[in-house]
Amino acid sequence: MTAARAALLGALVCLAVVCQAVVFRYVAVDGVVPNLALILVVAAAIARGPKFAMLLGFGAGLLLDLAPPADHVAGRWALALVVVGYLAGRVQRDARSSTVTAVLVVGAASFVGTSVYALTGVLLDDAALPMDEMLQVIVISVLWDLLLAPLLIPLLLWLMDLARPLRTA
Rank of each mutant, 00 (worst) to 15 (best):
L38C: 05
V29L: 13
I153K: 00
P150M: 04
V100S: 11
S110P: 06
L135W: 06
L151T: 11
L155D: 05
A149W: 03
V137A: 06
T101G: 13
V84A: 00
A7P: 07
P34A: 09
V33G: 01
T120K: 02
L15I: 14
L159T: 13
T168A: 09
S141D: 11
A109V: 02
A118K: 06
M134N: 07
V73K: 09
A11K: 04
D94T: 14
L62T: 01
A108P: 02
V33I: 08
I153T: 03
V82C: 08
V29H: 08
P150G: 03
A95R: 01
A47P: 05
R5G: 13
V83S: 00
R164S: 13
R96S: 12
I153E: 00
R90S: 03
T114C: 05
V23K: 13
L64S: 06
G57V: 00
Y86N: 04
Q20N: 11
C19R: 03
I39Y: 09
I138A: 03
A7G: 12
S115G: 10
H72V: 01
V83R: 00
M160D: 07
V41I: 15
L9C: 09
V23S: 14
G57E: 02
R164Q: 12
V41Q: 08
W77H: 11
M131A: 15
R76L: 03
L87E: 03
G107C: 07
R167V: 13
F111N: 00
L56F: 11
L12V: 11
E133Q: 07
V103T: 10
G75R: 04
L157G: 13
Y117G: 02
I138W: 02
A53C: 09
A70R: 08
A43L: 05
